[in-house]
Amino acid sequence: MYRIRFHGRGGQGIKTASRILGTALFLEGFEVQDAPRYGAERRGAPIFAYVRADDAPIHERGVIHRPDLVVVADDTLLTITPAQVLEGIASASVVLIYSVRSESWWRQQFPQIGQMVVLRPDRGTGVGLPAGIFCAGAAAALLGTVSREALVKAVEEELAAHDSALVESNRQAVLAAYEAVSVSHGMVHSGVPQPVAKTAAPAWIDVSRDAVDIAAPVIHAGTTSRLVKTGLWRTRRPVIDKEKCRRCLQCCAWCPEGGILVGEDGFPMIDYEHCKGCLVCVAQCPFKAIRAIPEAQAKEERDAQASDRQ
């Protein structure tokens, strides 16, 4: 059975990518199960989706713990522990990373990854399309059991509700990604069932009664939400231009997260640890003093400033 796990952020087309791959495998005659996994999150929050494909009916269900292929649509997730991107990878598992960084750079960061393929965003094809469609194409090629025809048909089926121009751009993008990793065609191998003897026994415990002040779902401590770094959800960052800012502080009032504080100089100050990147402040600022830049660009600018100082 192929077990494929997609990791990305809300808004990157991860659910659609998993469905395109699932449908393509189904068209190739596989039994398929695919599902997105999400909760109360929103755009930018880490999410994942999974696809199983086999020759026989599939009985497994839910989270994939031993993936044959992990697809990382957003490389910033690799450093976020709660995203659990690399959970359960073995030496035979393949990790596909959609990133501008090189394979050698990623190998240094994560020596525990046995087999790695880096798909670099193609500046020519499908500019503006979310990462998911490229990941679907590359994943299909890495499996080696999905033809171009099935892949294209899957794109057409899954995007049937959209206009033909959008379908066409996605068709080109999925094929470009399929070709881009053609040297690794068929690199992913179908996983075998884990025998009973090699399966770890559960460390069950007997749960005893606790006092009600902790046994009820009550949060006694204040401001615990500060501990949840929702800034990790952000794909675009609001940046305040102090030249234009008139310190009216309307942004502080509009911010749905209470994430804009007032500095000692009277200027608003964005708490980037908790700003989710909703950009309500950008829309509301009467002086157009807040602009939005991609997170990746913000990081590049920070790195550049750091090297200037050295």
Partner: peptide
Amino acid sequence: IAGGKGRDA
């Protein structure tokens, strides 16, 4: 994180 004493009052 949630606080509380964990003792019967």
